[in-house]
């Protein structure tokens, strides 16, 4: 580990997952798209880290790179101290069972030709675990499904919310340490979203999970996360505990994101500006040719010459709150 260790990584004994200088590049035609560049963060046992950003910011790619599906182009993923990027073959298959994933589209996450019971039992069958039937019934009951009546049906006989419950049951069957949730509620009806969010909180407590929760909805992320990391165009721009980050966003991008959320309660923000100051300008640049220096500078209202020359490093702005910006917004003006 000769790489410089960023200041926002914590020196603690209970770090379950540590991502160090993770980069993922995809070849697209003749170009190389830098989907993720030098992203580092850590997650402590029992913590939920929210990973937010808009489409194309690389948040889902980070989730998959943690699972080594596919492996990152550069960087390290330490899971319980073990560098997963060093593993291959059987050892990787073994270690990977400690991390599980659930996805955005619950219907395409389930093989339509298999019965629910077999889907949930898949991991147990692969590893030849004993008492698989008992375990399947237990996790299905835990997510609110009756194994006796639901087990023999096929996924298309269930609604989206129920399919997501099946996905959660499947991911829990192997008793993982870490659950990576990639937009788990975005495809669901509003009235079903809350059920799944509550269920995830319950499962986290019951099975002592550590979670990485990837989503674009800032309110959803705030609800479920202890810490939040904000990504823009393949880079981390701000990370910190949820309270501080939402109350005092220091990065201009985080500020723009928070100010854009339509709040369901008009009484709560009567004075909200509809035509306020411009928080964002222009268009998202191509990830194949990202801007030099700070990647947000082309759209930032505060950008200066230095932003084009120098890549901003993470710096501490408050207790457990770090921002990668040369000119962070530090005055205590809360956006909301």
């Amino acid at each position: 580990m000769t790489d410089q260790i960023p200041c926002h990584l914590r020196e603690r004994d209970d770090i379950v997952l540590r991502i160090l200088q993770l980069s993922v590049n995809f070849p697209v035609g003749k170009q190389t798209v830098q989907a993720v560049t030098n992203v580092s963060f850590d997650v402590a046992r029992g913590e939920t880290l929210g990973l937010v950003g808009e489409s194309g910011c690389g948040k889902s790619t980070v989730g998959r790179a943690i699972m080594q599906l596919p492996a990152p182009s550069a960087g390290h993923v330490f899971f319980n101290g073990q560098d997963m990027t060093d593993l291959a073959g059987e050892a990787l298959r073994q270690t990977r069972t400690g991390l599980q994933m659930i996805f955005q589209d619950p219907i395409s996450s389930l093989n339509p030709r298999r019965r629910v019971r077999d889907i949930v039992a898949e991991g147990l069958t692969i590893w030849g675990r004993e008492n698989a039937d008992t375990r399947v019934e237990e996790v299905m009951a835990a997510v609110g499904l009756d194994a006796a009546s639901a087990g023999d049906r096929r996924p298309h006989q269930f609604s989206g919310g129920q399919c997501q419950r099946i996905c959660i049951a499947r991911s829990l069957a192997l008793d993982p340490d870490v659950l990576i949730c990639d937009e788990p509620v975005s495809a669901l009806d509003v009235s079903v979203q809350a059920q799944i969010l509550n269920l995830l909180e319950d499962m986290k407590a019951r099975y002592h999970l550590t979670m990485v929760f990837i989503a674009h909805n800032l309110a959803v992320v705030k609800n479920i996360s202890d810490r939040v990391a904000v990504m823009y165009l393949g880079k981390l721009c701000e990370i910190g505990n949820t309270g501080s980050l939402y109350a005092r966003p220091a990065h201009p991008y985080t500020r723009a994101l928070l100010a854009s959320i339509p709040d369901a309660d008009p009484l709560a923000r009567e004075q909200a500006s509809i035509d306020g100051e411009p928080l964002l300008q222009g268009e998202l640049p191509s990830p194949a040719d990202p801007p030099s220096g700070c990647r947000f500078r082309t759209r930032c209202p505060y950008a200066q010459a230095r932003c084009a020359e120098e890549i901003p490093q993470m710096q501490l702005v408050a207790d457990d709150h770090y921002v990668a910006c040369h000119f962070p917004i530090l005055e205590p003006q809360a956006v909301r």
């Binding site: 599906l69 991390l99 994933m101």
Partner: peptide
């Protein structure tokens, strides 16, 4: 491309 293939790999399926 379906996620169930990814999920199977995550569970260690050969």
């Amino acid at each position: 491309q379906r996620e169930y293939v990814l999920a199977a790999r995550a569970m260690g399926a050969s």
